[in-house]
Design a protein around this nucleic acid. Structure first.
Lengths: 213, 213, 213, 213
DNA sequence: TATGAATGAGCCTTCATTCAT
DNA sequence: AATGAATGAAGGCTCATTCAT
């Protein structure tokens, strides 16, 4: 999880200290944005948290939104790895989906703060930078949709399943964990992941309509 | 879903015209809060939307938060009905769950705006009024957990399923629709609901662990 | 203490009820202005106190300042009587001063609310109407100054006494009672008045400089 | 009389320039509050007076009330010295009282602005901070009451004098000067002080009831 | 690197007052 | 006589941001 400074930031000289501060900044900002929301967090609070004066923040950041963008970039940066590890040509696409979902669940739980900020405060990302982030988010679902398609083709999922809807349902079931998962619960995270992914994958493979009217 | 004025609001005998304005206010505020977020929506924008001066809003509302609370009360008011219609003693608890989920899905889709506000901006509800609303939200999940418990007891769901986690997964899969459903899509809402609820219910009944390590 | 409506008020028809309301208005306004100050009292509070809606006040009053002016007029109206009862040609001007002061003290105690408003909020009286009220206030002191002058001429007060200063001191000592006197104290008001007036009159007649440098 | 920043104010190491501004702020605010009253003075007016933008005031102050409190603290800060200089065990308590009153008079005249604000606008001090200030004010009178008690015991004041009332009368006579004293009058302040204090002290020592009924 | 002072725009809210009914 | 709805101006305060030092 390398912390990336915004590409256009001001000149950097002494790396060590500077990078440290930047990471600290990101950390505290994440905590604050998560707790109070982006709009309701003031730069004053951020600067208090890192022990700088308000004005000094602008040596590290060009704007409050910079912080938000950095946090969200960080989030999806890691996520991309997970997506790239998927084997679309697996002989058992359903199980491949299971593995993919498990990783997403663990990832969502471990990045609950960032994810929460993403879901709530994405709209405060400057319009020009929204597309990049949205594309990454869509990537998660599209990968799920593709795997579902393969599994249908392979006969592992009934054709009655609508991949567009199912992929969304599955992703919603997976990412919702950021709202309720707390570290140190009774179940190990890996087991929680199996419960969720197992349920969703089973649902896909066994789906049948129960419509009455 | 009659829009209820907060009890604390001034005028008691609200004449026709007044009620109209109040509903209009709620409508526009909902739209704006949904689009821009509560914190980033100004009373100026709300008043512009209803054709009043900023200050005039306070004839109807005692604070910006009042608007938020009114919107969220409205939301859960309707939801309570759905919960109360559930037959906990049904001979087929799994199917009862399916029906419950379907209603929730339709409800979530039809109230996507309010739900979105709830998920994003609940934190701006004054502390003193948060509990009431939270309790209502918990109700949805607890009902699902109870039905899952009954279904396990009835042998419709394997005992390996953890009701606490499963109920959360199910609720997340259901409520997530507020993020992506748009009226007038290719599928009728009832069919979308069946896709989601069918998948989740099948997943519950057919869950099996795929854990590898 | 006849309550006078401002001369230019709107047409009056049914006298009884109207006058009643007006008196009630003055009473409540006096209480509120005294307790919260003129500037910090809202017409809303006044209307609440008399059981009318805010807008309805303007049937009785042309402006908030009208209320203030009416209260202060009332105050000095009564006071004028006291001044006019003084016998400037008394053979014992010092004792005449004592009697005058006693009446003022009783009056100040009984009108503590109005007096308090006068001292604190006179500045909110519209500029055009300030002169009239100021003139009345000056009247009290000028009468004291005149009596002191007579007493000096009669040899009852040493010539070293400066009437301008002494009259102010005496008036300050007298009117200060509005700040601390509470009905139902241990001493009857008449006795309190004697204590104050007795002290001041004795001081006038026995003054002697103690200046050291 | 160094102007003390409220402890709660942000910056800790106030550089020269900052202190200057703060003093200027206090000065102008005092003038404005005195002239227009606290409630009727806007922060806009204050900021205009010191040449800042309205919002910039809040770099120095946390609220309008902060300014008021600072002004009143300053006032009584100096006053405490005067009280502490009194020799309660003086062999001539009456004369000690005279000296005490003289100092108070000079002090009241020199701080007429602040005193005026105190008398008129004390009620706008936040409830939590009122007690501290009230206690200081009471101190002035209580000291007078004690000295009167000593003088009675020493036979310098007749026993008929009620110390509670007399001390109030004396204080009222003394502090009233803030309303009418203007610098550069015909009499030097020291002489004015002697006139007032001399009168009051003579009154105490020579008081006799003149009650008729 | 960081500070301290200031900006400027905007925000939520209050309130005296008006006026058609 | 009184109501109910609305106005319009102002008020206190917050905050992201800038910049000389």
């Amino acid at each position: 999880m390398k912390a990336l400074r915004p590409e256009t930031s001001r000149p950097v000289r002494s790396k060590a200290k500077s990078v440290e501060r930047w990471n600290q900044l990101l950390l505290e900002a994440t905590r604050l944005f998560r707790d109070r929301g982006f709009a309701a967090t003031s730069m004053q609070e951020v600067s208090d948290a890192v022990g700088l004066l308000k004005g000094s923040l602008y040596y590290y950041v060009r704007s409050k939104e910079d912080l938000l963008v950095a946090i969200l970039h960080d989030l999806h940066h890691r996520g991309e790895e997970i997506v790239s590890e998927v084997d679309l040509d697996s002989a058992d696409p359903l199980h491949e989906l299971y593995r993919y979902l498990c990783k997403l669940i663990v990832y969502a739980a471990e990045n609950a703060d960032r994810l929460s900020i993403f879901f709530r405060d994405f709209r405060f990302v400057p319009k020009g930078q929204q597309a990049t982030i949205i594309r990454k988010r869509d990537m998660y679902r599209e990968m799920a949709e593709q795997l579902i398609g393969r599994a249908i083709a392979a006969g592992q999922i009934p054709e009655a399943v609508n991949p567009a809807i199912a992929s969304r349902t599955v992703l919603d079931g997976v990412s919702g964990i950021h709202e309720w998962y707390r570290k140190g619960g009774s179940l190990p995270l890996a087991q929680v992941a199996d419960q969720i992914a197992g349920l969703l994958v089973a649902g896909l493979s066994q789906y049948q309509s129960r419509r009455e009217n």
